[in-house]
């Protein structure tokens, strides 16, 4: 198993954000983490990205407990724009390139061009959609083995969304890269995710292969989700 999350708990002051989350992802899979806002998705992502520590439980990525070593192979795309607003687009990527092994600057330029992103503008002046595109450039400019996308399509206008989806199909290193993406809008990821689980109040309430769930329940993931949420 490429990613192993074993009985992870996370407590914030006065509130449990995650309550015993356990799941596995095998290499090359695209896993969808579904759930409403505040279900604990972002917390889970931060823990897998080794940005924050769990209160209890352990996580392995590629057989290594999360930490410095796994940060070398994990691209973490948080929900919000994590880049320096005062940096120019290219400056930001040059900065990041210094930290990641195998960063391909030509690829970065190619992706920026494909996404119609200005490379000489300050990141702070870009629109939300453009900032979301930047995250994709970051994810696919270097050979990250695990890409964590927290709400990659949240609040983005349709043309930008289309570009992001196309990039995803174009750049996803089939068989080598594992992707975990989260969303509260299930319809956004319906066609991409192979395995899904639903997170509700910090617990996994349903999990399985997307196509198998459709077969069993005779409805779409959206339908299943609505049933659980309701």
């Amino acid at each position: 198993m490429f990613v192993q999350v074993n009985d992870v708990w996370k407590k914030y002051p006065g509130k449990w954000a995650l309550q015993g989350v356990t799941f596995d992802v095998s290499k090359g899979k695209v896993l969808g983490v579904l759930g409403e806002n505040g279900a604990g998705k972002s917390t889970l992502f931060r823990i897998i990205a080794s940005v924050t520590r769990p209160s209890k439980g352990n996580i392995m990525v590629d057989g290594i407990p999360v930490g410095l070593e796994t940060r070398k192979i994990v691209a973490f795309l948080p929900e919000i724009n994590p880049f320096y607003g005062w940096m120019k687009v290219m400056e930001q990527f040059e900065f990041l390139a210094a930290f990641y092994e195998g960063w391909d600057m030509d690829k970065t330029r190619e992706l920026l061009k494909f996404m119609d992103l200005p490379d000489n503008d300050k990141i702070g002046t870009l629109s939300r959609g453009q900032q979301a595109k930047l995250k994709m450039v970051f994810a696919f400019s270097w050979p990250a083995k695990l890409v964590l996308m927290d709400e990659p399509l949240g609040g983005i206008d349709p043309p930008a969304r289309k570009k992001i989806i196309n990039t995803f199909f174009h750049e996803f290193r089939f068989g080598e890269q594992t992707i975990i993406m989260s969303t509260h809008m299930v319809s956004e990821v319906e066609e991409f995710v192979e395995d899904v689980f639903y997170l509700k109040k910090g617990k996994i309430v349903l999990s399985g292969e997307a196509d198998r769930l459709r077969e069993e329940k005779g409805t779409s993931l959206v339908g299943i989700f609505e049933e659980i949420a309701g």
Binding site: A49, V51, L68, I80, Y84, G85
Partner: peptide, 14 residues
Amino acid sequence: KYNTVYLLFSLPKK
């Protein structure tokens, strides 16, 4: 304030 900590913290550095 601007969430760049996520970026800093996910960097493969101590």
